[in-house]
Computed example of a mutant assay.
Amino acid sequence: MTEQRKWVTMGDVARQAGVGKITVSRALRTPGKVSPDTLTRVMTAVRDLGYVRDETAGALSSQRSRIVGALVSTQEQSVFATTIRGLEEGLRDGGLQLLLASTGYAPETEAALIATLLGRRPDALVLTSSLHTPEARRLLDGAGLPVFELWELPEDPVFAAVGFSNRAASRDMTRHLADKGRERIAFLRTDRPADTRAEMRQQGYLDVVAEPRILAVPPDPGLTGPDYGAQGLARILDRWPDTDAVVCVSDTLALGAWCEAMRRGLPVPQRLALTGFGDTDFAGESGIGLTTVRVDGDTIGRTAAAMILDATAGEDIPRRTVDLGYTLMLRGTA
């Protein structure tokens, strides 16, 4: 019969170190208040036994879990990586830890995860979508927590938002193509009805183009972002063979479209201009030299972290949006 394993307790550490549990607690929380010899024995016992401090009792007494829940739309792309890094590092500096989950662009999944996270009594919530089900909004409004929506600027934020105008960024990029003489511009996206950022970027494109050519690739669990881009460009050229520019909703779709253009022997940008969104690693001059929109994800994350720390410290944080803007990166593909 397999032996049932149990958590290592503070009492186990105390016995190993030859001290009382109060001394162990003091050594872990205020090490300067115990002698160097005692501290060495306690920490040696902690290391040897693999002890992890139980924070649940402290959370119950202080009404703080020191956890921030974060729900991102996807973890399959690196677009949110810098935001999560900035958020995590900023929170860590203030003694808070990040609990991360992915919604897969599904509002119903987001609602279920919000309920799960609220059961953990987080100090704050971070979301990367502004489209919430009525149930999710009810939970968020009733939680009494600071809720931060990132990467968008919703008109009615739950609490506060940190991001930029997706619509304006796409509008500026499409106008750049028009100013360069492109007359038959298509827009390529994936067909996710709950992808609010894609919808706003499409609206920015429509602000400029009089005769739109929009193609949304149906979702397929077997496809990656570049797969969507390659299939999308093939369908655009089949339907509108005279297309001379494609605005892609993301860099990963633009990468797939670029590869498809290379396979077809279509010179980029001479015959076909391509743009992306996100300025991911491969987009730079060391990669494919993609014309794209740069968003400072790290600053978005750190700004949100600073606001969370202020809010959880008891400061009055007004319901507001913080617009951090964007930059058009004009490179060789357009």
Rank of each mutant, 00 (worst) to 15 (best):
A124R: 13
A81Q: 11
Y51P: 05
V72M: 01
R41E: 08
A45W: 07
P146C: 11
L139M: 15
V24S: 06
L125Q: 10
T38E: 02
L145M: 11
R53I: 06
I114M: 07
A112F: 05
L28G: 08
T109Y: 02
D54T: 05
T30V: 13
Q75N: 03
S61H: 15
P146W: 12
T109Q: 14
W151N: 08
S129Y: 03
D54A: 09
P31H: 09
S25Q: 13
S62T: 15
A59L: 09
A106M: 10
L39K: 12
E108I: 02
L153Y: 01
G104W: 00
A136P: 06
L113D: 09
R64Q: 15
A57I: 11
G90T: 06
V72S: 00
T82Q: 11
G90K: 01
R53L: 11
Q97I: 12
G95H: 00
L28P: 03
G18F: 09
A136M: 07
R29Y: 01
E55R: 13
W151L: 11
G144E: 00
A112Y: 08
F148K: 02
D93N: 11
L113P: 00
L140W: 06
S25Y: 04
R29T: 14
L113T: 07
L150R: 06
L28M: 14
L127G: 10
V52D: 03
T44V: 04
L150C: 05
M43T: 10
G142R: 14
L28V: 10
K21M: 14
G18Y: 03
V147L: 10
R85D: 09
V52A: 14
D48V: 03
G144T: 13
